[in-house]
Each structure stands twice: as structure tokens, then as C-alpha cells.
Design a protein around this nucleic acid. Structure first.
Lengths: 233, 233
DNA sequence: CAGCACCTCACTATTTCTGGGGAGGGGAAA
DNA sequence: TTTCCCCTCCCCAGAAATAGTGAGGTGCTG
């Protein structure tokens, strides 16, 4: 594994990252190696060995919101084998069939990586083989893959600093309180009561939080505060 | 490193995790090894080699909200050397002085680990030595530490499954659409317009989503949908 | 084929939020 | 010391969301 990591650390430019994913694929002898980034705004960035056709199709169909790999890993802490995801819904099965038709393997292993402000990325390896073979392979390389995922992500961030945290303005303690209780379902009156302040005062906090977060309404402000990790519910 | 990871994987029970942190400390010959978890509710869980006195003091003073290591890592993607954190504020310097008085090293290296729903943990090694020695040490073991941090976190989660996220009822596609656009700040009228349905219809989706999520209002429903990973914003 | 979940549309009244103002005191930093 | 941000309180009118009930069509599943 070592030379692979060295190559990754030396990589300069996005083309080198693309080449690195191909190197990793060849080194581990799998069908595909893919890095997929999802922005808090919903923007995506990916690089890897999937075919252009599949990538274009994926973006065009906005499969981000259907893909069980994304949805599953988004709720998980640890790397996951695709077999353990939920493929039961109709849209998921249709998606899977289409993916396989585009050359994506029937097996897969994805490492979720998270950053501040709701940043989220996936590092995936995929292959066509039977379950036993795949289980052996993932067992053997699980640790390598975690480490490579991190290095890959670090490199990708370094090469595209645009995606670095928009360093959203921090909220004041009272604003955090307000957002937190609102996210917990309290009405303004209840929040004001809980914080033992007047509802008018509370409203000032909500408004200033909304302003700081660039939100159009309370729901939006709470959603942004959550996705940026400013509040935890 | 290998035997350390093996020990970690074999660990059964929280006491074993405590022992593992001591093993890691001895293996790498540093002063302290600490795992620190911050719960979604603000609860904390920690284990490691800091003194009981310091741990108690930390909890009692609620240093969580002052500790530059927590604050800094919470905004960062990658492992960080304590030197690169912001220790300039008065409270931070007071905290640092007290920490060192309690035996915490003047040097430190912390790996942030994140999970779904804003879950956050830190894996820290700390030591007393000069800058050069510490830089050499972290350079040499950076990769190990990332991997150990992950394994440690995985194990800690496994041993305390309470902290794992709860599964919830899925939303219908239209409900997902509604929640997604609401989280993006659209008003009901705008969402209805975007989805090309009447606002009355939209309201039915919002209500049924609210019901499914056990939410008391729209903001609550969106917050829950987000924290359960049902929508990606 | 019957049940169930989903999608679509409608009305009315009430509660809640939002958008503009304005004002004073406190603390920390420059 | 001055400036800036934070916390606290107040009014009002208009906009938006909610509660409660109802109804019809589609499509899958047992």
C-alpha cells in the first residue's frame, strides 16, 4: 500500500487525482475506484474510473437523491459493504440495474468521510464477483481503504480549496439556543418560555441568526445551522 | 502498529477500551492517549489516560465550550497539531495553563471523527517535549493515528450502541421533495409552484411527513428529516 | 379484488411568524 | 476609550402556516 499513498501525497492537480484513482484500481485489481463529494449546497464533485456515460447519466438524473449508497452512507458512521444497504425500494432496484448495465460492479465497499459544515464525501471501490470473494477482499483491505479514503479526501480538498468550509459566521450562544429549540419542534412561545425571555427578544435572535445564515425563513435557518454543524439535534 | 489494532478489535467492554488507550500510550511512548465523544445532546463520553482530577474538573467547568482543541477540530476536516489551533483568547490561555498543571502535555495531536447527525469524537495524543521532537513524532505516526482513531471510535460505538442513530419510517418521494425544498428555504407557495402542484396538495405532504416523523411543526419535521438522513441538503 | 399507500384537489377559521421600526445596558476587544 | 457585538424589551400590521374535514384517482400487493 505504501507506494500508493506516496503517489497520492505527491499528486499535483486534479488530473493527478484521476490518475491516482486508476493506480489504486490497478494496484488492488478491482473494477472501479471512485471519489464522490457532496456539497452542503447539493453540488457534486467526483473523480474516478466510472464511465463518462454513467457519470453523466447520474448527474442528469440527479441520482444523488436515489442512490442507496449515498443515502445509506449518509446515515452511517463506518465503511459499509453495499450488500448491507437497503436496495428494497423500487427506485433503488431500478438504479442498481442501470448502474450494473453501465459497468458498475455488483459488489461495492464505500467509506464515508465527513467534515465540518456538513461536508460529506464517499470513497468507493466496486467490483464484479461473488459474495465470498468480495468479503475476503474487503476484509483484507479494509484498513488500507480507510486510510486511502482519508488521504484522497485530503488531497481533493487541497486541490480544490473552493470546497473548503465557507467559514460560516458563528452564532451567538442565545442564537444557538433559539435554533436548537426550534429544531426540537418548539414554537416561538415555547422557546421563549424555556429560555425565560420574552418572545420579542427571542424573535430578535431568530432574525439575527437568519441574517447570519443567509436564510429566508426560520425553517431554512434551522436547516442551515444543522447542516453546518452549528447546532446539534 | 498491527498488534495494537488487533488488541483494539478484540476489545470487549469499556474497561478493555480504557486498557487499549493505555496500551497505545505505552506502545508509542507518549504521555497521554484520549478518546473524547460529544453527544448530540451535549453529553460527553471519554476514556483515556488523563488524570481523574483533570477529567472531573473538565466536566465540572464545562470546558467543552472553551477547549480550543474541541472548538478547533470541530471546524476542521483533518487531524491537527495543537500548535495550529487558536490559543489567543484569554479563556483559552487560562484553560491551557490549567491543563498543563494537570499533567496534560504541552504538545498534542488530535484526529476529528464525524458521524451522521452531527456526531463528533476526538482521538488525541498528548506529550511533553519540544516542538521538533513532536513534529518528528507526528510525521512518523500520522497514518497510524488516523487508523487507530477510526478503530477506536468504531469500537466505542459498538460497545455503547445507545449512541447509534435510530431508524425511522421512510418518506414518500413527494414528501422527500417537500421536505427538501422547505429545507432550502422555499415557502409553501414556492415549493408548490416548483413541484407544479397546488399548495393544498403540498400541505397534505407536509402534514403526512410531519406525522411520520413525529414532528410538531414544519421546522421540526425538516430538522428530523435532515438528522435522520432522509433528505440531503 | 380488496386494502393500502400514494398523489391530487378544495374550504374556512385560527394561530403563528415575519418585517419594519426603536431603545437601553453590559462586556470584550482594538 | 470607543466601538462593536450581545442580551433584553416593546408595538403593529400583514403574510404564512396550521387544524379539521372531505373527496377522487392510481397502482401495487396479498
Amino acid at each position: 500500500m505504501e507506494p500508493i499513498l506516496e503517489d497520492l501525497e505527491q499528486a499535483k492537480g486534479l488530473a493527478a487525482l484521476q490518475a491516482a484513482s486508476e493506480d489504486i484500481r490497478d494496484h488492488y485489481n478491482v473494477d472501479h475506484v471512485v471519489y464522490h463529494w457532496v456539497d452542503s449546497a447539493g453540488d457534486q464533485y467526483g473523480c474516478g474510473t466510472y464511465s463518462d456515460a454513467w457519470r453523466d447519466r447520474y448527474l442528469e438524473q440527479n441520482y444523488l437523491r436515489v442512490d442507496p449508497v449515498i443515502l445509506g452512507c449518509f446515515q452511517r458512521f463506518h465503511p459499509v459493504d453495499w450488500k448491507r444497504l437497503d436496495w428494497s425500494s423500487k427506485s433503488a432496484r431500478a438504479f442498481q440495474a442501470e448502474a450494473i448495465a453501465h459497468g458498475v460492479g455488483n459488489q461495492g465497499f464505500s467509506v464515508p468521510i465527513r467534515g465540518p459544515n456538513g461536508q460529506f464525501a464517499l470513497f468507493t471501490t466496486s467490483h464484479s464477483c461473488d459474495d465470498k470473494t468480495w468479503a475476503d477482499w474487503t476484509d483484507a483491505h479494509r484498513r488500507d481503504l480507510i486510510l486511502i479514503a482519508h488521504m484522497f479526501n485530503e488531497k481533493a480538498l487541497e486541490l480544490e480549496p473552493d470546497r473548503a468550509p465557507e467559514q460560516s459566521q458563528a452564532l451567538s450562544p442565545r442564537e444557538v439556543d433559539a435554533m436548537t429549540f426550534l429544531a426540537m419542534g418548539y414554537s416561538r412561545a415555547q422557546v421563549a418560555d424555556t429560555l425565560s425571555i420574552s418572545e420579542h427578544t427571542l424573535r430578535v435572535y431568530i432574525e439575527s441568526a437568519r441574517f447570519k445564515l443567509g436564510a429566508m425563513n426560520t425553517t431554512h435557518a434551522v436547516a442551515r445551522a444543522m447542516s453546518r454543524g452549528l447546532i446539534v439535534v
